[in-house]
């Protein structure tokens, strides 16, 4: 065991079963090693840490079992041949490498979160699987960002039943039936955030935003000022700027949000991204600028990539009465 701890490459499949906790943690870092292609990291983590069968992983990513099998075999071959170590990284490399592990879990979660159509009942619930892996990771390594990611995943997943209506259409947060949110997941998610404030990273801050929504008894009672303050803490990006503008419009007046959106549009950073005109439409509607709102809904409709999103925008456009 000591020999393996010193970094000799190992076939991760050998470690499947009931490994001791430190073996399991080493496996997490080996499977999410940045020298592996991202898709291989995801597949290997689900297969060897999550214990899913190759067939299940293949179904989750809509590829054939043989394709997935090859992907996993190639990844294991690279672990052996490139000398990827089987160990927890030393303290100085840990934060960076933990980021990589968390990114893999969040990717698995989002893959499940974005595809809630339920068309394939045999598809494993990837979001739930990511949460299971997140709990495992937090149990092994209770770092603030690992807990933050677990909270973020739980608080998002808690809303999954309310996110889609009977017709399969997306229900925006504002219109969701909050009694259908999963109370147990919310409690667990908030609990994961209860720990110390030191080392608040982006996952934790995003989880805190979700926590504000989770605590609001109704959409109208949402503490948008708290959300706005959290967006100011996140590393700046066009997507953060977009969400911050929406929060600003909700916290103060829609016009303030519209002005921020105009600045973002002028930067050209989100050119062609449908949620930019969709946000403009929503805040214009709230400001009573119905002509502007209709124009922005039409712009968003042109760009929206999926049918449920187009149906949602079409319905909003119709409700303007224009």
């Amino acid at each position: 065991m000591q020999e393996r701890a010193r970094g000799g490459p190992v076939d991760p499949a050998e470690a499947v079963g009931e490994p001791e906790w430190d073996d399991r943690l080493r496996l997490v870092f080996t499977c999410a090693h940045p020298a592996l292609p991202l898709e291989a990291r995801v597949a290997l983590t689900l297969r060897t840490v999550g214990g899913l069968s190759t067939a299940e992983v293949a179904r989750a990513f809509f590829v054939s079992e043989s394709t997935m099998g090859q992907r996993i075999v190639r990844a294991k071959a690279k672990i052996a041949h490139a000398g990827i170590p089987y160990r927890v990284p030393p303290a100085d490399a840990l934060p960076e490498r933990l980021d990589g592990v968390l990114a893999v879990l969040y990717l698995i979660h989002n893959e499940g979160y974005a595809a809630t159509s339920g068309a394939d009942l045999q598809r494993p619930d990837l979001a739930a699987e990511a949460i299971r892996l997140g709990r495992l990771l937090v149990g092994l390594l209770p770092e603030p960002e690992a807990r933050g990611l677990l909270a973020l995943m739980l608080l998002q997943h808690a809303r999954s039943a309310a996110r889609v209506d009977a017709a399969g259409d997306l229900v925006p947060l504002e219109e969701q039936d909050r009694t259908r949110w999963d109370a147990a997941e919310i409690v667990e998610g908030l609990g994961s955030l209860a720990a110390p404030e030191s080392g608040r990273g982006p996952y934790r801050v995003q989880a805190e935003i979700q926590a504000v929504h989770a605590r609001a008894a109704s959409a109208g009672e949402t503490d948008w000022h708290a959300i706005l303050a959290r967006y100011d803490e996140l590393p700046s990006s066009p997507f953060v700027a977009l969400n911050r503008a929406i929060a600003l419009g909700m916290a103060e007046r829609p016009e303030a949000g519209l002005a921020a959106l105009a600045r973002l549009a002028a930067s050209g950073a989100l050119e062609g991204y449908h949620l930019l005109p969709a946000a403009r439409a929503d805040l214009s509607r709230r400001a009573g600028r119905l002509t502007d709102a209709a124009e922005s809904y039409r712009a968003a409709l042109e760009l929206a990539p999926t049918e449920p999103e187009r149906r949602y925008l079409q319905r909003r456009l119709g409700e303007l009465g224009g």
Binding site: R6, G7, G8, A35, A82, G83, I84, P85, A93
Partner: peptide, 10 residues
């Protein structure tokens, strides 16, 4: 000649 890939990366 490194211990493993992580040392080579470092």
């Amino acid at each position: 000649d490194c211990r493993d890939l992580d040392e080579a990366i470092d």
